[in-house]
Nucleic acid binder design. Structure first.
Lengths: 251, 251
DNA sequence: GCGACCCTTCGGCACCCGGCGAAGGATCTC
DNA sequence: GAGATCCTTCGCCGGGTGCCGAAGGGTCGC
């Protein structure tokens, strides 16, 4: 297949990248970044292609291991294969050039703003909201960024007080930094990030807006963030960078 | 360019992935993963294409921000744009499917084995050697993996004793985990990882083999690893998994 | 200045790949 | 069973892209 001289059996980078190198497949993956499962036709509509076209792309993505599927009756549900995959796509998205075209239509612009304010990023929170929470946790000494990200002793206690249940110790790192592609600053990911997000849904701090990844803070949530993290409404909305950290980019 | 319905101005994942989706460009990037600068014709030869073809690929990679160039006289030197870029490529490589073809020729097989034993991964050490060092540091309590990777107090002292100078605090994380694509286990990266690697070269612990990324441990190095980390020759060669950690994959 | 060397530009070629619609299983509803 | 819905397979088309070799410009060494 490849006539390159020094095929020493290394990783086939091009094969993996090729899966994401198509606009349609990329938008499918970005749509699935909310961590939920969608049907083939929903994804086709989101990507703006015919169902037949979507089928082919989905086959490729599944075969390549980026997506997993589950068939239920006449429906085919697709989701990202796992946290690894989600993280890979987020990393790429954070490093990718941004489309310059400002949203043309009014509804598109408002959808965009909703996404910027708050959204799920696979299984944790991103956007202004996600970054604000991360920064507040840093300010309060719950996270320590001096060498990588770490949950401090105080952080462990805080989780307990807030009623957030830390996930069981699997291979997955408890705390991880994920670069936010709207804020260009890191937010909290990993097992704890997921737990915080799950709790925020369960406790009614946030709700989904529409059918996409966007989430909005409820009144309850605003109060809770104030009580538990000392966050004011202004800080949440503005993405106040006090307490931000010098990158936690990848290398 | 893209007629997709919901262009809300997000990241152009496909553009970035497209850069790496070509076998030739991918092999160029992998070759540059040793962190050094190479000329255009050297890269053309490594990738097995005509110089004119390489020129076009290099233009794309530079325009896309993955590579930076430096012209000196009639030479054009190319290197990866930075640690971010290197980390991105390493992540992809670790997750990409491996080519199944075993090396056909004898020299290719021996080159491959040399790479497996030890190599630079951008600016730090990888392969059996890199993983062995990382594991030994973990066993000795110099690194702590309970929440992400952290250099412990003892680790800081150890660096001083070993004469390894920690890098100045820039935005770059001091300690980071990088998934090794031959060992399938994490090795030490980040600022400290780079410092260890630099010191290993300076102190004559390791030397380059041939012109590529492969490195070999010297007699001095073997002694030094024994003295500083208690590593035996057998442990270094075998990739003894004692002390290994459950992944530090991405998510 | 002359040749050697490194790189680039430019056609031309071949191929791959993504798009669609039509037709056809498969499944649920009535 | 009839009809609607979801998904898939297939053939076809068009455009994009990677490759090369030939020719040319820049730079270095003698």
């Amino acid at each position: 297949m490849n006539r390159h001289a020094e095929d020493t059996g290394g990783p086939d980078l091009a094969a993996l990248a090729g899966l994401l190198a198509d606009g349609t497949r990329a938008s499918i993956c970005l749509a699935l970044l909310d961590g939920r499962a969608w049907t083939a036709s929903e994804l086709a509509r989101m990507a703006g292609v015919a169902p037949s076209t979507a089928t082919e792309h989905l086959n490729l993505l599944v075969a390549g291991g980026l997506l997993t599927q589950e068939r239920q009756g006449r429906h085919r549900y697709l989701r990202l294969a796992g946290p690894d995959t989600a993280a890979l796509i987020e990393n790429l998205a954070a490093m990718a050039p941004h489309r310059t075209t400002p949203p043309r239509s009014l509804p598109a612009a408002s959808r965009r703003r909703a996404l910027e304010r708050g959204r799920t990023c696979y299984d944790h929170l991103a956007g202004t909201l996600g970054v604000a929470i991360t920064d507040a946790m840093t300010r309060r000494g719950l996270l320590d960024w001096t060498h990588g990200v770490v949950l401090t002793e105080r952080g462990t206690g805080w989780l307990r007080e807030a009623g957030i249940e830390p996930p069981p110790a699997t291979g997955r790192p408890l705390v991880r930094s994920c670069l936010d592609w709207t804020e260009r600053r890191p937010h909290l990911a990993g097992g704890i990030g997921a737990a915080v997000c799950r709790h925020a849904f369960d406790a009614g701090w946030i709700t989904r807006i529409g059918t996409g990844r966007a989430v909005a803070l409820t009144g309850t949530g605003e109060q809770a963030l104030h009580d538990h993290l000392g966050l004011t409404a202004g800080q949440i909305r503005s993405g106040d960078p006090a307490g931000s950290e010098l990158s936690a980019r990848s290398a």
